[in-house]
């Protein structure tokens, strides 16, 4: 079975899919394929999005969609068989402050009880790893990041919370994310960031982009309340 599938999802949109499970390595492979395709078909592609194991390309028009699919597949297969080592992700790590104080973490106690681990341990396990942003979606600016330490693996809530506060940092399965706006959500909220994830006034409206590396660091309630957002990068 081929490791690469290419198929249309619209008359002028097609997706390159690696038949591999979610991992940082899979994501980096698909990102490499995306870069190569964008470089080669600069004029023909208007927009592209990455998501875990897929890269999706929006073409100028509907002409020759099948021909593009075939060319994208050939390029992807050639890249995958290329044994050259993947380059390290050179993007700078984005540090995001998180306050894990119970007043900002409505689900921390329940998570602690379900996992039978102390709150301190949960905070430590959550803030230690460097996360990969696998995609942005759900609502504008919501980053899907992984992988969370397996010791924090919890299924989503069976009933979503009606209103999750903006800035809420949450976990579900092996993923972690941040709610940019107030919205209903089913992930477990264990902290909150004072950083603005999405601001339509900014030239770059999203704080995070797909492909970024993220490192959380703990701040106190006082620091959160006195937080002055520095100019965004």
């Amino acid at each position: 079975m081929s490791l690469v599938r290419v198929y249309p999802i619209h008359e002028k949109v097609c997706t390159v899919q690696l038949e591999k499970p979610i991992s940082a390595a899979t994501f980096q492979e698909v990102e490499r394929i995306q870069q190569a395709i964008l470089k080669k078909f600069k004029k023909e592609i208007t927009e592209s999005i990455l998501c875990y194991n897929t890269a999706t390309f929006f073409l100028q028009d509907e002409k020759n969609l099948n021909a593009f699919c075939m060319q994208f597949q050939q390029l992807a297969i050639a890249l995958l068989s290329d044994q050259q080592l993947l380059e390290e992700n050179k993007k700078p790590t984005i540090r995001i402050p998180v306050c894990y104080d119970i007043s900002f973490a409505p689900d921390l106690t329940a998570v602690s009880n379900q996992l039978k681990r102390s709150k301190e341990e949960i905070v430590k396990l959550h803030s230690q790893p460097k996360y990969q942003v696998y995609t942005i979606g759900f609502v504008p600016g919501f980053p899907y990041m992984g992988e969370v330490d397996a010791r924090l693996n919890l299924p989503r809530k069976t009933t979503p919370t009606t209103r999750v506060a903006p800035g809420s940092v949450a976990i579900a399965g092996l993923q972690t994310g941040i709610y940019p706006v107030e919205i209903a959500g089913g992930w477990h909220v264990i902290g909150r960031t004072p950083s603005r994830l999405f601001d339509k006034q900014r030239e770059n409206p999203c704080l995070l982009e797909t492909g970024d590396q993220v490192q959380f660091y703990q701040i106190t309630k006082e620091e959160f309340e006195n937080w002055n957002e520095p100019a965004c990068t």
């Binding site: 499970p21 897929t54 979606g137």
Partner: peptide, 26 residues
């Protein structure tokens, strides 16, 4: 595994209901 979707695709939820994605689809 979550991936790009577009208006016009029909998704089927675990409960078996088809949903046609429209202009404001995620």
């Amino acid at each position: 595994i979550s991936t790009a979707v577009m208006p016009g695709l029909i998704q089927v939820t675990p409960a078996g209901f088809p949903y046609i994605l429209m202009a404001d689809a995620q």
